[in-house]
Design a protein around this nucleic acid. Sequence first.
DNA 1: AACGAATGGGAAT
DNA 2: TTCCCCTTCGTTC
Length: 277
Amino acid sequence: MPEGHTLHRLAGEHQREFRGRVLHADSPQGRFVEGAEAIDGQELAKAEAFGKHLVHHYREPGSRKASGPILHVHLGLFGKFRQGTGEPPAPTGALRLRLTADDPSPRGPQWAELRGPTACEIWDPTQLADLIARLGPDPLRPDGDPDAAFRRISRSNTEIGALLMDQKVVAGVGNVYRAEILYRHGVSPFRPGRTIDAGLWQEMWLDLVHLMRAGVRVGRIETVRPEDRPHTRRLTRSQATYVYRHAGEPCRICGTEVALADMQGRNLFWCPTCQPR
DNA sequence: AACGAATGGGAAT
DNA sequence: TTCCCCTTCGTTC
């Protein structure tokens, strides 16, 4: 589920597996041939995530500064990264980008494959600076500043359900975290931003940090509190959330049917009783 | 096996 | 507001 936690997890994995190694890059699908050529033979200096965006910084092998190409990836709805050790599998399907590290590192050969991304491109530093400037604070970054988000929320007439999905307000939150954070705090998605007070926002932000960090750790979104989950076996997908994709089922707290509506072209789930307008 | 929906967001209209 | 990207997963036949 590519919300922010997915990209931060990928950035961490790429750091561990590829940082400091010289990579081979190609685009079997043919849609990123020039970009792959720019990366091919470069060393990965750093991998990091900003909201739902993944960024690789490359450099000439042996150089100290990351002055090489910058790779920008946005998975969108369908994009997927897979990685593994050993020989990379023969390319199948629409394989946009393949990275392999086959240097004689004690870590052994390593590969990663990217399919179906919304964006996969080479950027210059200005483009990266523009992205960072337009994104709101990211709960998964240590410099994520909740006040910056609150300044926008508290003077907006837009519904909080829409503001939470706006990457200029908060970076990395998607449809699942949006639904779940509102439910956990009893907040109606239809409340205008200006009705959210500073204390409530502080609590929601801290909860987002907590939930999204857990998402990075576990590798998926789990928002159900320990006391509300069955602890005997592994959670199924539907046991991992309170309201997301639970339309028509009884609310865990009050039994009211979980509601479903369209908000700006996306499915919105909420409990009309626990999250009154 | 075949089909539809979806975690997103930018470009086109 | 609609289209596109073109994957994975769950549901239905």
